[in-house]
Amino acid sequence: MIEAAIFVIFPLCLAFAAFSDLFTMAIPNRISVILLGTFVAVALASELAIGEIGLHISAAALVFAVCFCLFAANVMGGGDAKLLSASAIWFGLNASLAGFLLYVSVAGGLLTLLVLFLRRQEDRILAAGIPVPRLLLTAKKIPYGIAIALGGFAAYPSSPLMQATLAQLP
């Protein structure tokens, strides 16, 4: 049962956040709450050491502190900050967190370039009838939840919980 939660909850939440951000330019708070709550339940059920859980919580707190500053400077949206922090708890304070953040940064840069390109081509896209979410073309922000999801998908196999789960499989 714990293995199923480890394999399914994190990717499913990220996918839902990405689609929500793409179509509504918002990430529901419940996704971040589910990620945090599920991590705590999984960590306790998988008998992670208290010190290890502390490192995971420290990772989330550190990412949240940086994201809070970016949010206060109006550089990052609140939903993105909460999702990135809630995702960071699944990686812990180790190399897998650095990999996750690197993947998110690269995906975010590419996403930003793509969205800016699409916005410059708005007239052509609309004239051709290409199905692109209208908010993607008209909003003044980037749906960074997509980049967080892509970074999470890329880095998740190297996360401590996933590695421990894979090591226990026959």
Rank of each mutant, 00 (worst) to 15 (best):
M1W: 09
M1G: 11
E3F: 12
E3W: 11
F7L: 14
F7G: 00
V8L: 14
I9W: 08
P11E: 03
P11L: 01
L12M: 14
L12A: 15
C13G: 08
F16Q: 10
F16M: 13
A17N: 07
F19W: 12
S20Q: 12
T24N: 10
N29Q: 12
R30W: 15
R30P: 02
S32A: 14
L35P: 03
T38S: 15
F39N: 05
V40C: 09
V40R: 01
V40D: 05
V40A: 14
A41Y: 11
A45Q: 10
L48Q: 08
L48P: 00
A49I: 07
E52D: 08
I53T: 10
G54N: 06
H56L: 00
I57H: 00
A59V: 04
L62K: 00
L62Q: 02
V63G: 02
V63E: 03
F64M: 15
A65N: 07
V66H: 02
V66Y: 01
V66F: 11
C67H: 02
C67Y: 04
C67K: 02
L70R: 05
A72C: 11
A73H: 12
A73P: 02
G77P: 09
G78V: 06
D80A: 12
A81Y: 04
K82A: 14
L83M: 10
L84Q: 03
S87Y: 04
I89L: 12
I89V: 15
I89P: 02
W90L: 03
F91K: 09
G92W: 08
N94F: 04
A95E: 11
A95I: 09
S96I: 00
S96R: 01
S96L: 01
L97V: 10
L97W: 06
L97M: 05
A98T: 10
A98H: 04
A98E: 07
A98P: 00
G99M: 13
G99N: 10
F100W: 04
F100E: 02
L101S: 05
L101R: 05
L102D: 01
Y103F: 15
S105R: 07
S105W: 11
G109V: 12
L111I: 01
T112W: 05
L113Y: 04
L113D: 01
V115T: 07
V115D: 05
L118C: 11
R120E: 14
R120Q: 14
D123S: 13
R124N: 14
I125P: 01
A128S: 14
I130D: 08
I130Y: 12
V132F: 12
P133V: 10
R134L: 14
R134I: 13
L137Y: 08
A139C: 10
K140A: 15
K140L: 11
I142W: 10
P143E: 12
P143W: 09
G145M: 06
G145E: 08
G145I: 06
A147C: 04
I148K: 07
I148H: 06
A149N: 05
L150K: 03
A155R: 02
Y156L: 01
P157R: 03
S159F: 00
P160N: 03
L161K: 05
M162N: 05
M162D: 01
M162C: 08
Q163L: 13
A164G: 15
L166V: 13
A167R: 11
P170Y: 10
P170E: 07
